[in-house]
Every structure is written in C-alpha cells, then in structure tokens.
Design a protein around this nucleic acid. Sequence first.
DNA 1: GACCTGACGGTAC
DNA 2: GGTACCGCCAGGT
Length: 105
Amino acid sequence: MEDYYQRVYKIVEQIPKGKVTTYGSIARYLGIASGARMVGYALNKAAETNIPAHRVVNRNGELTGRAYFPDDTMRERLKQENIRFIDEYQVDIDQHLWDPNEEMG
DNA sequence: GACCTGACGGTAC
DNA sequence: GGTACCGCCAGGT
C-alpha cells in the first residue's frame, strides 16, 4: 500500500520550520494510532526524497533515525532551524512539538 | 503462505 | 522516574 507512504510524506511536508513531530502523532492522524512503526518505516524511504524527515522524532524527542542520515545531517538540520537540544541527539520535543491532529484538524 | 523484522508507543512493575 | 515487555501494521524472505 504505497498510498500509505504518500500520506505520511504529505504530513511530514506540512511540518513548519523550527517544529518537530512524533511518529505517533503522524500515525494517529493517518488513523493508525498504533502504526507509529510504519511511519518510521515510511520515513526510511523518505530519507532519499525531498521530505524533511529530520523533523520527525520519537515520543521522547530522540533522533532515532539519525543513523539513516549521512553523518549528522539530521542533527545539523534541526540545529539549523533553531531547534533546542536537551541532549546531543535529543530535541526538546515538549518545546517544539507540532501535532498534525491539532494543526490540521 | 508463515515467520521475522522494523526511524515506535503505552502500560506495567 | 526508569526499565521491561507486549502490541501494532506492513513488507520482505
């Protein structure tokens, strides 16, 4: 079901600069609250696209997907957007959280 | 067609 | 408050 991935990409593209969201929020918006894993899986493919997948982190704000980005691209991109880091590879999710369920309805 | 794996999340202890 | 375990859906072998 590639259409599923398209849905994920569409949402990730809507993430405003300086904001981040979680896999769970995206999954919930898609109607699969428990499909957070699928979101990350989709973003894996998104890593080779023009989609800002670096703005998506887990519920804890950890850059779990940094391994799928060349070097520290993911962290550099976030820092470039003035994202506050509470750890070397963990953003202040509570400060920059962007929930599509609230922003997009 | 069955089993295993995977950028996660919530609950239980 | 942190760690551990189970559940979830989709895709590949």
